[in-house]
């Protein structure tokens, strides 16, 4: 009877620890990545060097990852102070420099699926962003249209920002990393 009781207690603990830790590592990119401010880099999915966690994550999502030589993909789901990005807030990206010669910025729902916006725009790129005289730029992600650099985003629920840097000298192994835009949230409704 005592053995039965202790097994009844032990088995759920073992399952929770083993499966829980595996889920934690696979659900989001955690192995082989770096963080820059609110941004987290997606690890490269190179067939020869891929780690088991990234392999398992990619097998689940079926996503096509950017090649290491091509550039870097950064994802943000929270702002600089650590609050989750919400569609009912004005999300401001503030940058001093261009992080790469060519970059693109996408705002999606928290699941990464593009959201329908009235203007049909789903992304913004370094080609179209307006900079001030010193090369500074900022982008507002919000469902409501505004002047300046505006990227339509989801009106409600969580938001995921994806910043893809092409043609960049940086890679995940380099000791210095690009300076990425600051992420702030204002005027939450």
């Amino acid at each position: 009877m005592r053995l039965f009781l202790s097994l009844l207690l032990t088995i759920p603990i073992v399952l929770a620890l083993g499966l829980g830790s595996a889920w934690y590592m696979i659900a989001a990119p955690r192995a082989g990545t770096v963080e820059v401010g609110a941004w987290r880099a997606l690890p490269a999915a190179e067939a020869e060097t891929i780690d088991p966690y990234t392999r398992a994550r990619i097998a689940r999502t079926g996503e096509i990852a950017m090649a290491a030589g091509e550039g870097l993909t950064f994802v943000a789901t929270h702002d600089d102070p650590g609050h989750d990005l919400e569609g009912n807030c004005e999300i401001h990206l503030v940058a001093d420099t261009a992080p790469a010669r060519l970059w693109t910025l996408t705002a999606t729902g928290a699941d990464g699926e593009p959201v329908a916006t009235p203007s049909k725009r789903t992304h913004m790129s370094s080609r179209e962003v307006l900079r001030d005289g010193n090369g500074h730029w900022d982008v507002v992600v919000n469902a409501t249209a505004r002047s300046g650099n505006w990227l339509p985003g989801p009106g409600k629920g969580g938001v995921r920002l994806t910043l893809r840097l092409y043609d960049t000298p940086f890679n995940l192994g380099s000791s210095s990393l690009p300076t990425l835009p600051k992420v702030e949230q204002r005027a939450c409704r």
């Binding site: 999502t61 693109t104 990464g112 959201v115 049909k120 893809r164």
Partner: peptide
């Protein structure tokens, strides 16, 4: 890549 369009996940909508 657009809302409601079936493609592969992870592709850049600017491309």
């Amino acid at each position: 890549v657009a809302p409601g369009v079936k493609s592969l996940p992870g592709l850049d909508p600017a491309m």
